[in-house]
């Protein structure tokens, strides 16, 4: 059960399920009014993807592996991006989320420098769509103008809408509700992404986290040694042919 005053939203990412298909990437762009990444945006290294698939090579032909891992804002409990913002445009709210306030942002980009996960993206241009494609834009999400920083919000608009609607209808918002889940989680065909409330001990994410963080479990956090206290827990990739149990 989800109650408004005790939520700590978070995600569990099972790297062993992820196939690198990029379905989450496109779903995110559709939900969050992310500007179309044109060819020149890629060439200038200014493409925007709130969630991305990192691909790592190991070895070379014939003994070669490609590893995929989805990376989105980790919603750090101790976020390096927050203290560097001179205008408090990014802060940690009491639901465990790292929030980006577009109307406060003045575009210093200090936060992007501060973020060790490189999940913050800057709008170098005014976003443009052909007139007819604007019909698709999600009215629940602000279109960010030029000079604004943006990043994964855990689809906060969905959280707001689904909590409000369940209050309105006097219904219980259940764990794993598809209206509550971020767009990437619903899109993921392999169920590599799970979203929920870490403060609810019965939620799926809490149980997965508990299991994963046990001795011998698969849980880890990205760059845990930085002490960022992230709200995204990763489950290790399994590869029987590899002997290490730690990244190398």
């Amino acid at each position: 059960m989800v109650t408004a005053d005790s939520n700590k939203w978070g995600m569990v990412v099972d790297v062993d399920r992820c196939t690198g298909c990029q379905g989450c990437v496109v779903a995110c762009q559709s939900e969050n009014n992310i500007p179309i990444n044109l060819e020149e945006h890629f060439n200038q290294r200014r493409a925007i993807q709130w969630i991305r698939i990192e691909r790592y090579w190991e070895g070379e032909y014939p003994d070669v592996k490609a590893r995929f891992i989805p990376v989105m804002c980790q919603h750090c409990g101790n976020a390096p991006c927050e203290p560097v913002c001179p205008v408090y445009a990014t802060y940690h709210n009491n639901e465990g989320m790292n929030v980006q306030v577009y109307n406060r942002c003045i575009g210093t980009r200090f936060c992007a420098n501060g973020c060790p996960y490189h999940v913050r993206f800057f709008n170098f241009w005014e976003p443009e769509w052909p007139e007819s494609l604007k019909n698709q834009l999600n009215p629940d999400v602000t279109v960010r103008s030029r000079g604004i920083m943006e990043k994964c919000s855990f689809c906060v608009q969905r959280i707001q809408r689904s909590t409000r609607e369940s209050e309105r209808d006097n219904e219980v918002l259940e764990d794993g509700d598809r209206g509550l889940n971020p767009a990437c989680v619903n899109a993921c065909a392999t169920n590599a992404l799970t979203f929920g409330n870490f403060n609810d001990p019965d939620s799926k994410v809490s149980k997965m986290k508990e299991e994963a963080m046990k001795e011998g479990g698969r849980g880890y956090r990205l760059m845990e040694n930085l002490g960022t206290d992230t709200n995204v827990v990763y489950l290790k990739k399994v590869d029987e042919s590899v002997e290490v149990t730690h990244g190398h």
């Binding site: 709210n93 989320m97 929030v99 306030v101 577009y102 406060r104 629940d140 707001q160």
Partner: peptide, 8 residues
Amino acid sequence: TDCATCHY
């Protein structure tokens, strides 16, 4: 009065 109440 959390910003994310209205701004997202």
